[in-house]
């Protein structure tokens, strides 16, 4: 679509919509499907060094205001994922971003090195998972740990990588800058925000894991602020994939105005049919109406 092209590091995207990680799995068939459905780039579900079964169900709950999930990072492990990413790179006519996760700094380097064999266009690093060496605290909870992860990945691969950060911090801009200083090529913001649903009849949390990550419409204001803060911190040159609560073209326009170069779409793939195409045509309509020719013209007036 005219005027919607964007760039993330060396990747040229036909439009700024990116299938977010964790949506529709580790499987090449589904990544190719999202590309056919109009996504400008696709991100795989995070893979770890060893296979993971994840949590028991319920792993996901969907209400009008929010989606809450604790799948537990289930994935078949990097060994099997290499084949899936390879197949996706071959079959999807758009850039493929391979998401990785680990539970120690060292393992982040190992997974990054292995997944690079599949030659994805970019690697996304889920730094919002718990660090088993720090009583389960998220790597992205502090600048120092997040930077250590970025450094490990930087040393393990030549493929550009984006650090995906959690919004559950008071200083996301500072953390993003520390990642960039340690070698990160881009930032994906945000991961889900911690949350919980309770069933009063069962007198329990609804998710088997009790806590999970909030996504969907409720996350949008949180994501907009995070992206805005990160843009201020890292300056104009570092690409940002703004993710969280985007389901319409106007959501995407707002996210780009707040500082994103591309927009991740996750929960909305089930909220709306043909979400990628829908978001793009609504963006075009707004840009035409307001006389914008290119995405970079979408800026806040301060």
């Amino acid at each position: 679509m005219m005027g919607l092209e964007t760039q993330l590091c060396k990747m040229k995207l036909r439009n700024p919509t990116v299938l977010a990680s964790g949506i529709r799995g580790n499987n090449a068939h589904l990544l190719i499907r999202a590309a056919k459905e109009g996504a400008g780039a696709v991100t795989s579900k995070s893979c770890s060094l060893a296979p993971r079964e994840g949590h028991n169900n319920p792993t996901m709950i969907n209400t009008p205001e929010a989606m809450l999930n604790a799948i537990g990072l289930s994935n078949p492990g990097v060994e099997e994922e290499i084949g899936e990413i390879r197949a996706a790179v071959m079959g999807a006519k758009v850039p493929v971003i391979a998401s990785i996760v680990a539970f120690s700094i060292e393992d982040f380097g190992k997974v990054a090195e292995r997944i690079s064999e599949a030659a994805p266009h970019m690697i996304e690093v889920d730094a919002a998972c718990p660090n088993t060496h720090r009583e389960g605290r998220m790597f992205s909870a502090c600048a120092q740990d997040a930077a250590a992860v970025a450094k490990a990945v930087e040393e393990a691969t030549n493929i550009p990588f984006s650090m995906k950060l959690s919004p559950d911090v008071p200083n996301i801009g500072e953390i993003a800058q520390a990642c960039v200083d340690a070698g990160a090529d881009a930032i994906t913001a945000i991961n889900t925000m911690g949350g919980m649903y309770v069933d009063a009849y069962a007198r329990r949390a609804v998710l088997h894991n009790w806590f999970g990550g909030v996504s969907g419409p409720a996350l949008k204001p949180v994501a907009l602020k995070a992206v805005y803060n990160i843009r201020k911190a890292v300056g104009p040159k570092i690409p940002i994939i703004g993710t969280g609560g985007i389901s319409t073209g106007m959501d995407a326009i707002e996210m780009i105005m707040a500082g994103a170069n591309a927009v991740g779409i996750g929960s909305a793939v089930v909220l709306r049919k043909n979400v990628f195409k829908g978001v793009c045509s609504e963006m075009s309509a707004f840009m035409k109406e307001k006389g914008y020719k290119r995405l970079y013209e979408l800026k806040l007036e301060e």
Partner: peptide, 21 residues
Amino acid sequence: YMKCGIGVCGHCACGDRLVCF
């Protein structure tokens, strides 16, 4: 084998079709 049941997680894929969705 289903996890989310609503078309998000991709676990119940059969090729590029999601059994739940």
